[in-house]
Amino acid sequence: MTTIITVTSGKGGVGKTTTSASIASGLALRGFKTAVIDFDVGLRNLDLIMGCERRVVYDFVNVIQGDANLHQALIKDKHCDNLFVLPASQTRDKDALTEEGVEKVLKELEHQGFDYIVCDSPAGIEHGAVMALTFADEAIVVTNPEVSSVRDSDRILGIIQSKSRRAIEGREPVKEHLLVTRYSPKRAHEGEMLTYTDIQELLRIPLLGVIPESEAVLQASNQGIPAIHQKGTPVADAYQDAIGRFLGEEHPLRFVEYEKPGLIKRLFGGK
Protein backbone atom coordinates (compact mmCIF):
# COMPACT_ATOMS: atom_id res chain seq x y z
CA MET A 1 0.00 0.00 0.00
CA THR A 2 1.35 3.36 -1.00
CA THR A 3 0.27 6.40 0.97
CA ILE A 4 0.33 9.76 -0.78
CA ILE A 5 1.01 12.67 1.58
CA THR A 6 0.52 16.21 0.34
CA VAL A 7 2.32 18.99 2.16
CA THR A 8 0.40 22.17 1.51
CA SER A 9 -0.47 25.54 3.04
CA GLY A 10 -2.00 28.02 0.63
CA LYS A 11 0.38 30.71 1.78
CA GLY A 12 3.97 30.86 0.58
CA GLY A 13 7.08 30.87 2.71
CA VAL A 14 5.63 29.03 5.67
CA GLY A 15 7.92 26.01 5.40
CA LYS A 16 6.25 23.56 3.03
CA THR A 17 9.43 22.53 1.28
CA THR A 18 11.42 22.37 4.53
CA THR A 19 8.65 20.19 5.94
CA SER A 20 8.42 18.00 2.85
CA ALA A 21 12.17 17.39 2.95
CA SER A 22 12.19 16.61 6.66
CA ILE A 23 9.06 14.46 6.69
CA ALA A 24 10.26 12.48 3.66
CA SER A 25 13.72 12.05 5.19
CA GLY A 26 12.23 11.08 8.54
CA LEU A 27 10.01 8.43 6.98
CA ALA A 28 12.96 7.08 5.00
CA LEU A 29 15.13 7.00 8.15
CA ARG A 30 12.50 4.80 9.71
CA GLY A 31 12.92 2.36 6.86
CA PHE A 32 10.07 3.28 4.57
CA LYS A 33 10.76 3.51 0.86
CA THR A 34 9.87 7.12 0.20
CA ALA A 35 9.69 9.47 -2.78
CA VAL A 36 9.35 13.21 -2.52
CA ILE A 37 8.01 15.12 -5.52
CA ASP A 38 8.40 18.85 -6.14
CA PHE A 39 5.12 20.14 -7.61
CA ASP A 40 6.40 23.71 -7.73
CA VAL A 41 7.08 23.61 -11.46
CA GLY A 42 8.87 26.75 -12.55
CA LEU A 43 10.20 27.64 -9.09
CA ARG A 44 11.89 24.47 -8.06
CA ASN A 45 13.34 24.54 -4.57
CA LEU A 46 13.12 21.06 -3.18
CA ASP A 47 16.30 19.93 -4.92
CA LEU A 48 18.18 22.77 -3.17
CA ILE A 49 16.81 21.88 0.24
CA MET A 50 17.64 18.23 -0.38
CA GLY A 51 21.08 19.17 -1.70
CA CYS A 52 20.73 17.37 -4.99
CA GLU A 53 20.48 20.34 -7.35
CA ARG A 54 23.64 19.39 -9.21
CA ARG A 55 22.35 15.96 -9.99
CA VAL A 56 19.12 16.98 -11.72
CA VAL A 57 19.11 15.67 -15.28
CA TYR A 58 15.46 14.90 -15.92
CA ASP A 59 12.50 16.22 -14.01
CA PHE A 60 8.85 15.60 -13.18
CA VAL A 61 7.58 17.28 -16.35
CA ASN A 62 9.96 15.23 -18.50
CA VAL A 63 8.44 12.09 -17.02
CA ILE A 64 4.88 13.34 -17.47
CA GLN A 65 5.57 14.16 -21.10
CA GLY A 66 7.34 10.88 -21.73
CA ASP A 67 10.74 12.42 -22.49
CA ALA A 68 12.34 10.37 -19.74
CA ASN A 69 11.31 7.43 -17.63
CA LEU A 70 10.80 7.61 -13.92
CA HIS A 71 13.94 5.65 -13.21
CA GLN A 72 16.06 8.26 -15.01
CA ALA A 73 14.45 11.17 -13.22
CA LEU A 74 14.44 9.89 -9.61
CA ILE A 75 17.47 11.11 -7.68
CA LYS A 76 18.69 8.99 -4.81
CA ASP A 77 19.15 10.97 -1.62
CA LYS A 78 22.64 11.42 -0.16
CA HIS A 79 21.64 10.71 3.42
CA CYS A 80 19.03 7.98 3.24
CA ASP A 81 19.19 4.87 1.10
CA ASN A 82 15.49 4.52 0.51
CA LEU A 83 14.66 8.13 -0.26
CA PHE A 84 14.26 9.43 -3.80
CA VAL A 85 13.66 12.95 -5.05
CA LEU A 86 11.67 13.80 -8.16
CA PRO A 87 12.59 17.41 -8.92
CA ALA A 88 10.38 19.98 -10.60
CA SER A 89 11.19 21.54 -13.91
CA GLN A 90 12.60 25.03 -13.75
CA THR A 91 11.84 25.96 -17.32
CA ARG A 92 8.16 25.08 -17.64
CA ASP A 93 5.08 26.34 -15.87
CA LYS A 94 2.40 24.58 -13.91
CA ASP A 95 0.19 23.93 -16.90
CA ALA A 96 2.63 21.19 -17.80
CA LEU A 97 1.15 19.20 -14.91
CA THR A 98 -1.80 17.31 -16.31
CA GLU A 99 -4.05 15.25 -14.12
CA GLU A 100 -3.49 12.14 -16.24
CA GLY A 101 0.26 12.73 -16.24
CA VAL A 102 0.46 13.15 -12.47
CA GLU A 103 -1.70 10.10 -11.93
CA LYS A 104 0.50 8.05 -14.24
CA VAL A 105 3.65 9.00 -12.33
CA LEU A 106 2.06 8.30 -8.94
CA LYS A 107 0.77 4.93 -10.17
CA GLU A 108 4.20 4.02 -11.40
CA LEU A 109 5.79 4.92 -8.06
CA GLU A 110 3.16 2.78 -6.38
CA HIS A 111 4.04 -0.01 -8.74
CA GLN A 112 7.71 0.32 -7.79
CA GLY A 113 6.81 -0.44 -4.20
CA PHE A 114 7.11 2.97 -2.58
CA ASP A 115 5.56 3.13 0.89
CA TYR A 116 5.16 6.88 0.95
CA ILE A 117 5.00 9.57 -1.71
CA VAL A 118 5.39 13.08 -0.32
CA CYS A 119 4.00 15.79 -2.64
CA ASP A 120 5.54 19.20 -1.99
CA SER A 121 2.81 21.61 -3.06
CA PRO A 122 3.44 25.07 -4.48
CA ALA A 123 1.89 28.06 -2.71
CA GLY A 124 -1.45 29.36 -3.85
CA ILE A 125 -4.68 27.63 -4.73
CA GLU A 126 -4.19 27.44 -8.46
CA HIS A 127 -3.54 24.56 -10.79
CA GLY A 128 -0.18 23.44 -9.32
CA ALA A 129 -1.49 23.31 -5.78
CA VAL A 130 -4.65 21.52 -6.88
CA MET A 131 -2.59 18.94 -8.78
CA ALA A 132 -0.48 18.33 -5.67
CA LEU A 133 -3.53 17.58 -3.54
CA THR A 134 -5.74 15.79 -6.07
CA PHE A 135 -4.41 12.33 -5.28
CA ALA A 136 -3.67 12.82 -1.58
CA ASP A 137 -4.48 10.18 1.00
CA GLU A 138 -3.25 12.38 3.81
CA ALA A 139 -2.52 16.10 3.93
CA ILE A 140 -0.12 17.96 6.17
CA VAL A 141 -1.25 21.57 6.34
CA VAL A 142 1.69 23.78 7.26
CA THR A 143 0.67 26.92 9.10
CA ASN A 144 2.59 29.80 10.67
CA PRO A 145 1.23 31.40 13.83
CA GLU A 146 -0.18 34.43 12.05
CA VAL A 147 -3.67 35.28 10.93
CA SER A 148 -3.08 35.37 7.18
CA SER A 149 -1.41 31.98 7.17
CA VAL A 150 -4.26 30.45 9.18
CA ARG A 151 -6.80 31.95 6.80
CA ASP A 152 -5.00 30.49 3.79
CA SER A 153 -4.73 27.09 5.46
CA ASP A 154 -8.45 27.19 6.06
CA ARG A 155 -8.97 27.90 2.38
CA ILE A 156 -6.74 25.07 1.25
CA LEU A 157 -8.56 22.67 3.61
CA GLY A 158 -11.78 23.62 1.85
CA ILE A 159 -10.16 22.86 -1.48
CA ILE A 160 -8.92 19.49 -0.23
CA GLN A 161 -12.48 18.71 0.81
CA SER A 162 -13.88 19.58 -2.58
CA LYS A 163 -11.25 18.87 -5.22
CA SER A 164 -9.33 15.82 -4.02
CA ARG A 165 -10.10 12.55 -5.76
CA ARG A 166 -11.21 11.09 -2.45
CA ALA A 167 -13.78 13.87 -2.08
CA ILE A 168 -14.96 13.72 -5.68
CA GLU A 169 -15.36 9.96 -5.64
CA GLY A 170 -17.03 10.04 -2.23
CA ARG A 171 -14.41 7.81 -0.62
CA GLU A 172 -13.11 8.21 2.91
CA PRO A 173 -11.95 11.84 3.12
CA VAL A 174 -8.32 12.90 3.01
CA LYS A 175 -6.83 12.63 6.51
CA GLU A 176 -5.80 16.12 7.55
CA HIS A 177 -2.95 17.05 9.88
CA LEU A 178 -1.98 20.46 11.20
CA LEU A 179 1.70 21.29 11.47
CA VAL A 180 2.48 24.65 13.03
CA THR A 181 5.91 25.90 11.98
CA ARG A 182 8.12 28.84 12.89
CA TYR A 183 6.60 28.85 16.35
CA SER A 184 8.10 31.07 18.97
CA PRO A 185 6.81 30.18 22.46
CA LYS A 186 8.06 33.49 23.80
CA ARG A 187 6.21 35.59 21.25
CA ALA A 188 3.08 33.48 21.56
CA HIS A 189 3.29 33.88 25.34
CA GLU A 190 3.56 37.63 24.96
CA GLY A 191 0.58 37.74 22.61
CA GLU A 192 2.56 38.77 19.53
CA MET A 193 1.76 35.50 17.79
CA LEU A 194 -1.21 33.20 17.74
CA THR A 195 -0.77 30.25 20.06
CA TYR A 196 -0.96 26.77 18.56
CA THR A 197 -4.24 26.24 20.43
CA ASP A 198 -5.70 29.37 18.76
CA ILE A 199 -4.75 27.93 15.39
CA GLN A 200 -6.15 24.54 16.15
CA GLU A 201 -9.37 26.02 17.44
CA LEU A 202 -9.94 27.75 14.14
CA LEU A 203 -8.83 25.02 11.77
CA ARG A 204 -10.27 22.15 13.81
CA ILE A 205 -8.00 19.42 12.53
CA PRO A 206 -5.68 17.21 14.59
CA LEU A 207 -2.32 18.71 15.51
CA LEU A 208 0.62 16.76 14.12
CA GLY A 209 3.27 18.91 15.71
CA VAL A 210 4.70 22.31 16.45
CA ILE A 211 8.07 23.15 14.90
CA PRO A 212 9.89 25.94 16.73
CA GLU A 213 11.34 28.93 14.90
CA SER A 214 15.07 28.31 14.61
CA GLU A 215 18.15 29.52 12.86
CA ALA A 216 19.00 25.89 12.21
CA VAL A 217 16.39 25.79 9.44
CA LEU A 218 18.03 28.49 7.36
CA GLN A 219 21.40 26.91 7.91
CA ALA A 220 20.03 23.54 6.91
CA SER A 221 18.50 24.79 3.69
CA ASN A 222 21.61 26.67 2.70
CA GLN A 223 23.66 23.54 3.19
CA GLY A 224 21.13 21.40 1.37
CA ILE A 225 20.65 19.08 4.31
CA PRO A 226 17.06 18.63 5.52
CA ALA A 227 16.59 20.11 8.99
CA ILE A 228 15.72 16.74 10.48
CA HIS A 229 19.38 15.70 10.12
CA GLN A 230 20.54 18.53 12.43
CA LYS A 231 20.70 16.17 15.37
CA GLY A 232 20.06 17.62 18.79
CA THR A 233 18.36 20.78 17.56
CA PRO A 234 14.78 21.43 18.69
CA VAL A 235 13.70 21.57 15.04
CA ALA A 236 15.00 18.09 14.27
CA ASP A 237 13.48 16.72 17.48
CA ALA A 238 10.14 18.35 16.73
CA TYR A 239 10.09 16.87 13.23
CA GLN A 240 10.98 13.44 14.64
CA ASP A 241 8.08 13.73 17.07
CA ALA A 242 5.75 14.76 14.24
CA ILE A 243 6.76 11.72 12.20
CA GLY A 244 6.21 9.51 15.21
CA ARG A 245 2.72 10.93 15.65
CA PHE A 246 2.06 10.55 11.95
CA LEU A 247 2.85 6.85 12.33
CA GLY A 248 0.51 6.57 15.29
CA GLU A 249 2.93 6.96 18.20
CA GLU A 250 2.20 9.24 21.11
CA HIS A 251 4.63 12.00 21.96
CA PRO A 252 4.03 14.90 24.27
CA LEU A 253 4.36 18.32 22.64
CA ARG A 254 7.78 19.85 23.16
CA PHE A 255 9.18 23.34 22.58
CA VAL A 256 5.82 25.04 23.05
CA GLU A 257 6.07 26.35 26.61
CA TYR A 258 7.86 29.58 27.33
CA GLU A 259 10.08 29.55 30.36
CA LYS A 260 11.25 32.84 31.69
CA PRO A 261 15.02 32.78 31.85
CA GLY A 262 16.21 32.59 35.42
CA LEU A 263 18.76 34.95 36.90
CA ILE A 264 21.71 32.66 36.36
CA LYS A 265 20.77 32.03 32.77
CA ARG A 266 20.40 35.75 32.20
CA LEU A 267 23.79 36.45 33.74
CA PHE A 268 25.70 33.72 32.02
CA GLY A 269 23.96 33.68 28.69
CA GLY A 270 22.58 30.65 26.94
CA LYS A 271 19.62 30.66 24.67
Binding site: I125, R151, D152, D154, R155, G158, Q161, S162, L202
Partner: peptide
Amino acid sequence: LRSGQRVYAAGGDIVVLAA
Protein backbone atom coordinates in the same frame (compact mmCIF):
# COMPACT_ATOMS: atom_id res chain seq x y z
CA LEU B 1 -17.23 26.04 6.38
CA ARG B 2 -13.81 27.23 5.44
CA SER B 3 -12.46 30.40 3.94
CA GLY B 4 -13.64 30.69 0.35
CA GLN B 5 -16.45 28.17 0.73
CA ARG B 6 -19.97 29.35 0.13
CA VAL B 7 -23.24 27.56 0.66
CA TYR B 8 -26.62 28.74 -0.51
CA ALA B 9 -29.93 27.39 0.72
CA ALA B 10 -32.27 28.23 -2.15
CA GLY B 11 -35.80 28.91 -1.05
CA GLY B 12 -35.36 27.91 2.58
CA ASP B 13 -33.44 27.94 5.83
CA ILE B 14 -29.97 26.70 6.58
CA VAL B 15 -28.66 25.14 9.77
CA VAL B 16 -24.90 25.01 10.27
CA LEU B 17 -23.62 22.77 13.04
CA ALA B 18 -19.94 23.58 12.64
CA ALA B 19 -17.92 26.76 12.57
